[in-house]
Write a protein that binds this DNA or RNA. Structure first.
Length: 711
DNA sequence: GAGCACTGC
């Protein structure tokens, strides 16, 4: 057995003395029903007052008054997300009906925080306090504190480029540096400039950087300067401060219990094995408390799960009280909920998680964290346009985030399965997503906002020139950009309006012309969500035979159409029998289970479908169907995805016509055995080999319009 | 004949 021995050492920057215990009003004892809500209010007030941020309320409000931009560095548990908007509201920042907007990278955070703040303010959600996320708008004209996802605010900016409704925008979790956050930061900087100039001139502001919509032009509105607050949990505020021209940074203390950090003496050659050893070491040597182990993916989690149970058999009966709970994003939600179930007494829960447990999900009861120091991360090659997932070392910030998960409820321990010297070699923070992904969407969105010079755009971290050029090229080939790199009218402008990958937006526009919009809309919705197929390893054969009835000889795209239509048809049948939404949901999820379809993905696809349908109607695009005319659909698919056409080679592999890349058909495709001469694919992924997934037969006469017949 | 971290509009 290798390693697993940990050197005990305290890592100073995270160990912090616990706050004094809070005296809380007991909700259960002695309170009559009529007093309960009063008690609850009292309890909430106490909670609010006890937050670390409460002691600096006045100072924070002063700083916001004095500065147009400030950076707030607040650690976990400081209360910045829930309290600051309330402080600003009370200080009069919503006068004249203006709104305080708070952005979050994740939907679930926007919703839960809004609910909490509405309760604290003792108002109904959707009134003074509300939230807006894709598919869900819980706001009204009286909403003054609005939580939303950062991507949604970007969409809003397309309609109102100077964000005229907002007096304050708070960008929360900015340290995560998602693509949306980064684009938003650049945009907000410009909006701030524009509003400031207009304010000083005291007349409507017009320039060529920020476009105004007609309403703004005609109403001759006057705009107050935009207050901007960047909130980050990372200790390094310098980057943000420099980007915002030396903006002041304010530190707010967090509330976190001390976490002992332990390193190994030597590097571990096999982190899976080291994880196992550490799980058992904690279980046998340490006091009660649940263990959270970070692994890289589903397969690894399943492996460790199995190995834990295997080794458990070797332990004496009394020590076999371990309960393993896996959690990763593609796990059905009922199974995800298992991590929140209380651990049976005398049992130790071992949570085997991907990075979903780093930020998205907070699991109570965790006292021990095992951090092997690796993560599966997306890697994008701008030259080939290829994405792949690779296992790589985490950053220092990520390591801190992980160890912090052990100190939420009491003092904890974190076992880093690497030597301390390795920790110091890790990069400080994860490379911002904008440097690791395709920029086609970002470029299109910026063009839509009126920024023509993308290479010169003031990004906090500039993506590589080649990455931008690749995206410009792609958008040009899709017809979204003109020869002089301006947004084309109407195609480019229409494309900015769809919340989809640009290539899918173009497919919808073309499908209107080809009279198969109904089918393409389904395809685009199904391709926009996570995999629709649920394939548990132990029931793979059963799953395959369940999918067989949907399969189309023309390819995966029409197979997806068949599945979607079968699901809708089933739902309507149930709806005819009952009008209870819950019963319909339940039946549909049973249908999904019987057919090995991922319920969550299907629901998501239904949502996307209905959302896009509304946009299509607004744009006067009629939902035409090609009926049984499969050729018509293939023509349209070929015209839409001509960039993704590939030809069969003598050895059975394929060659992408646009760039010569050699690829294989993924075995999950319905065309895997058929191997048609020429295919259209909508996904390219590198694993052990370079695979294309979601494939249909190309329609050659259409394809020859885009490529020389010879080549 | 293979295997998909996590988000988001």
């Amino acid at each position: 057995m290798s390693g697993g021995a940990c050197e005990r050492r305290c890592f100073p920057s995270i160990s912090r003395s616990p706050l004094k215990e809070q005296k809380l009003v007991n909700l259960n004892e002695g309170s009559k029903a009529s007093n309960k809500s009063l008690d609850r209010k009292h309890w909430i007030l106490q909670q609010r007052r006890s937050l670390p941020i409460a002691s600096v309320e006045r100072r924070l409000v002063d700083e916001v008054r004095k500065n147009d931009t400030i950076i707030i560095v607040g650690e976990t548990g400081s209360g910045k997300t829930t309290q600051l908007p309330q402080y600003l509201f009370n200080a009069g920042f919503c006068r004249d009906g203006k709104v305080i907007g708070i952005t979050q990278p994740r939907r679930v955070a926007a919703v839960t925080v809004a609910k909490r703040v509405a309760e604290e303010c003792d108002v109904q959600l959707g009134q003074k306090v509300g939230y807006a996320i894709r598919f869900e708008d819980a706001t009204s004209t009286s909403t003054r504190i609005k939580y939303m996802t950062d991507g949604l605010l970007l969409r809003e900016a397309l309609l109102d480029p100077i964000l005229s409704r907002y007096s304050v925008i708070i960008v929360d979790e900015a340290h995560e540096r998602t693509v949306h956050t980064d684009v938003l930061l650049g945009l907000l900087k410009k909006v701030q400039d524009a509003r400031l100039k207009q304010h000083k001139l005291d007349k409507p502001y017009i320039n060529n950087v920020v476009k105004f919509d007609n309403e703004c032009h005609s109403s001759n509105m006057k705009f107050s300067p935009l207050k901007l607050i960047i909130m980050s949990a990372s200790l390094d505020a310098k980057g943000f401060s420099e980007y915002f021209c030396g903006a002041k940074a304010v530190y707010v203390q967090g509330r976190q219990y001390p976490v002992d950090i332990l390193y190994t003496y030597h590097p571990e050659p096999d982190y899976v094995d080291a994880t196992l050893i550490t799980i058992f070491k904690i279980h046998l040597d340490d006091s009660p408390g649940d263990i959270l182990a970070f692994l890289t993916g589903q397969e690894e989690i399943e492996l460790v799960d199995m190995l834990v149970h295997e080794r458990l058999k070797q332990l004496p009966e009394l020590s076999r009280n371990i309960l393993t709970v896996p959690i990763y994003s593609s796990l059905p939600s009922e199974q995800q909920m298992n991590v929140f179930r209380p651990t049976p007494s005398n049992f130790r829960k071992v949570i085997l998680a991907t990075n979903i447990a780093e930020t998205s999900v907070t699991i109570p009861g965790v006292k021990y964290v095992i951090d092997p120091g690796v993560v599966k991360s997306r890697y994008y090659n701008p030259v080939t346009g290829m994405e792949s997932l690779i296992i790589m070392p985490i950053s220092k910030a990520q390591a801190l985030q992980r160890s912090g998960r052990a100190g939420r409820e009491g003092p904890g321990k974190c076992f880093r399965l690497y030597p301390e010297s390795e920790f110091w070699k890790l990069i400080d923070s994860t490379v911002p997503e904008i440097k690791r992904c395709s920029l086609s969407n970002v470029v299109l969105q910026l063009k839509g906002l009126g920024f023509d010079d993308i290479i010169g755009f003031d990004f906090m971290d500039k993506p590589s020139r080649s990455s931008i050029k690749q995206s410009l090229q792609e958008l040009y080939l899709l017809g979204a950009l003109t020869d002089d790199c301006k947004l084309s009218d109407p195609v480019g402008i229409q494309m900015t309006r769809f919340p989809l990958d640009p290539i899918y937006s173009k497919a919808l526009i073309l499908a209107g012309e080809f009279k198969c919009l109904e089918e393409m809309l389904i395809v685009v919705a199904m391709l926009s969500v996570e995999s629709i197929f649920y394939s548990p390893r132990e029931k793979l054969e059963e799953a395959r035979s369940a999918w067989k009835k949907f399969s189309s000889p023309d390819g995966d795209h029409l197979t997806l159409v068949t599945i979607f239509r079968a699901a809708v048809e089933y739902r309507e049948k149930i709806r005819a029998a009952t009008n209870k939404e819950k019963a319909i949901d339940k039946s549909l999820s049973r249908w999904c289970r019987d057919n090995f379809i991922n319920n969550r993905s299907l629901k998501h696809a239904l949502d996307v479908h209905s959302q896009i349908k509304v946009y299509l109607k607004q744009m006067d695009m009629a939902l035409s169907s090609c009926g049984d005319d499969v050729l018509q659909f293939r023509r349209c698919l070929t015209a839409s995805f001509f960039l993704n056409a590939a030809e069969k080679q003598p050895d059975g592999s394929y060659r992408v016509k646009a760039n010569g890349q050699k690829v294989q058909i993924h075995p999950s495709s319905v065309l895997f055995r058929t191997k048609p001469e020429c295919i259209i694919f909508t996904e390219l992924i590198q694993t052990n080999q370079i695979y294309v997934r979601n494939i249909s037969r190309a329609w050659m006469p259409e394809l020859s319009k885009y490529y020389d017949v010879e080549s």
